[in-house]
Amino acid sequence: MRRRHHFHIDHAGHSVSATVQTGHTAVVEILVDGKETGYATTHGDHPVSVQVELPTDPPQRVSVRATPGPGLPRCLLEAPGVEPHIMSPRPY
């Protein structure tokens, strides 16, 4: 059974959202300021990192590490020079 899980964080003045669709093949979509900027698939519960750029001056590369399972999915925002930030789950 496939389910969608949503996550969000604000970083460097930008909105970063992730949607993790679970199932045999997990699908991860990343939006920065409401625009799709990254996409990845993984099998089962294997973690996957999706690299995206924040539209700062100069652009900042960050990655979202999504872990589809076991249990509930989790997402972390990883940026250079700072500790990884846990992305908050959203109920919608």
Rank of each mutant, 00 (worst) to 15 (best):
G13I: 13
G34F: 15
K35G: 10
L72M: 05
V64W: 01
R90F: 11
R65V: 04
A26H: 14
D45N: 13
H46S: 11
M1H: 09
Q51W: 14
S17H: 04
L31E: 04
V32G: 05
G71D: 01
P68C: 02
H85K: 11
I86V: 15
G71W: 00
T37I: 09
L31G: 01
D10E: 13
V64I: 06
V62C: 14
V27H: 11
V32F: 12
P58F: 03
D45I: 05
P59D: 14
Y39G: 09
I9L: 13
C75V: 11
V28W: 01
T67F: 04
A66L: 11
R74C: 08
T37K: 13
L31F: 02
K35I: 15
H85R: 14
V28K: 00
R2Y: 06
V27G: 03
S88K: 06
P59N: 13
V50T: 10
L76P: 00
L77Y: 01
F7S: 07
V50Y: 04
T42Y: 05
Q21F: 01
D10H: 12
T19N: 06
L76M: 14
A66R: 02
P84H: 07
P59L: 15
E78V: 15
E78Y: 09
V50K: 00
H11I: 02
I30W: 05
T22K: 04
V20E: 00
S88I: 03
A79K: 03
V52P: 02
I86C: 05
H46Q: 10
E29K: 10
L31T: 03
R61W: 01
R2Q: 08
E36T: 07
T42L: 08
S49W: 04
T22G: 12
V64D: 00
S15Q: 14
V28M: 01
L76D: 00
H6N: 11
M1F: 15
R3L: 07
A26N: 07
H5E: 00
H24P: 14
C75F: 07
H46V: 13
V28D: 00
T41C: 07
L54M: 13
T41S: 09
